[in-house]
C-alpha cells in the first residue's frame, strides 16, 4: 500500500492481523470534511502516536474510535472483524478503551471502588441479590490488576482524591487494562502533568504495550511522542499526511509534517 505500512508490518513479524484497523474513514459535517479517507493500523505491542495541529481532526478521529461519533463512511476493524458503535459502551465492549484527559475517576471513592465502578462484584447468595458488595474480592483483585501494570500504590483503599496526577493517570490506565481492553486510547495523558510525572506516564505506557496491549497515544507533547512511539501518524487538514518512524526520522521533521511545511517542500512519507 505504501512504505509506512510496509515497514509497520516488518516490525511486527509475520503477517499478524492488526488489532485495530481504520479503513477509509471519513467524517463530514455538511460540506465540511473533518476527516477524509483515514487509513492506519495498530499492531500488538505497538505504541502509535497520533499527532496534528489543532483542528487537524484528532479529536474527531478519537471520538469515532471511542464510539462517541459515527463515521460518515469507512470501517473500523478490531482483530479483523468490522465493528460499529452506537455509544462509548459499545466501543468498550469490543475492547477499545479510552482514557480521557479528565480521567473519569471519582475522587471521593477508593482506588478499588474506582477500578470496579459500573461492574461491581457482589457476594454470592441472597445478600448478593440485594447488591451486597464483595469488597475483599474487589480489593485483592485490584492489587493484582495494579501489580500487573506495574503500578504500585501504598493501599488500594486510598481515596483517589489523595493521589498525585501521575498516580491518578496510572489508576485510570490500570482500570482500562483491567477491563480487558484490546486497544488503549490515551487522550492527552500528560497535558496536566509536571515533567517528572510525565516520565512516569511514559514508563506506564511502555509497560502496558509490553503486555501486548497496543496503545494509541494522542498528544501535543511531541518529545514524548517521539521517544515512546514506534510509529507516528500525522494528521493535517483531516488527512493522514504522513506515517513516520521515530527511529528513522528526527523530531524536527515530525514538526514539519504537522505544520504542513514538509508537504510544501515536496517530501513524501506515504
Amino acid at each position: 500500500m505504501d512504505s509506512g505500512e510496509q515497514s509497520g508490518a516488518a516490525a511486527s513479524p509475520g503477517l499478524e492481523q492488526p488489532v485495530l484497523e481504520v479503513r477509509g474513514v471519513s467524517k463530514r459535517y455538511g460540506s465540511v470534511h473533518a476527516l477524509r479517507d483515514i487509513n492506519f493500523e495498530i499492531h500488538r505491542n505497538e505504541v502509535v502516536g497520533l499527532v496534528g495541529d489543532n483542528g487537524a481532526g484528532k479529536s474527531t478521529l478519537v471520538n469515532i474510535l471511542s464510539g462517541a461519533l459515527h463515521p460518515t463512511s469507512g470501517q473500523i476493524l478490531v482483530d479483523g472483524a468490522p465493528v460499529s458503535f452506537k455509544s462509548a459502551t459499545d466501543a468498550r465492549d469490543v475492547g477499545i478503551e479510552t482514557v480521557y484527559q479528565d480521567l473519569a475517576l471519582a475522587p471521593d471513592l477508593s482506588i478499588w471502588a474506582n477500578l470496579f465502578l459500573g461492574r461491581e462484584r457482589t457476594v454470592s447468595g441472597p445478600l448478593g441479590w440485594l447488591g451486597w458488595l464483595d469488597r475483599r474480592a474487589m480489593m485483592s483483585r485490584s492489587v493484582e490488576d495494579l501489580d500487573r501494570t506495574k503500578i504500585h500504590i501504598a493501599s488500594v483503599s486510598s481515596r483517589v482524591g489523595r493521589l498525585s496526577g501521575g498516580q491518578r493517570q496510572a489508576v485510570a490506565v490500570g482500570r482500562a487494562v483491567a477491563w480487558g481492553s484490546r486497544v488503549l486510547l490515551l487522550d492527552e495523558p500528560t497535558a496536566a502533568l509536571g515533567v517528572e510525572q510525565q516520565a512516569k506516564v511514559g514508563d506506564l505506557i511502555r509497560t502496558v504495550s509490553g503486555h501486548g496491549i497496543p496503545v494509541l497515544l494522542i498528544s501535543h507533547n511531541l518529545p514524548q511522542v517521539y521517544e515512546l512511539c514506534d510509529r507516528v501518524v500525522v494528521l493535517f487538514h483531516g488527512r493522514v499526511i504522513a506515517e513516520l518512524r521515530p527511529k528513522e526520522t528526527d523530531l524536527d521533521s515530525i514538526v514539519s509534517w504537522i505544520t504542513g511545511s514538509a508537504m510544501l517542500a515536496g517530501k513524501t512519507a506515504r
Binding site: R92, D102, L109
Partner: peptide, 17 residues
C-alpha cells in the same frame, strides 16, 4: 457505592456505564 460515585463525579459514573 454508585450513590457516592454519582455525587463525586457524575461524568465518571456515566462513563462507567
Amino acid at each position: 457505592l454508585r450513590t457516592y460515585a454519582i455525587g463525586s463525579n457524575e461524568v465518571a459514573a456515566r462513563r462507567a456505564g
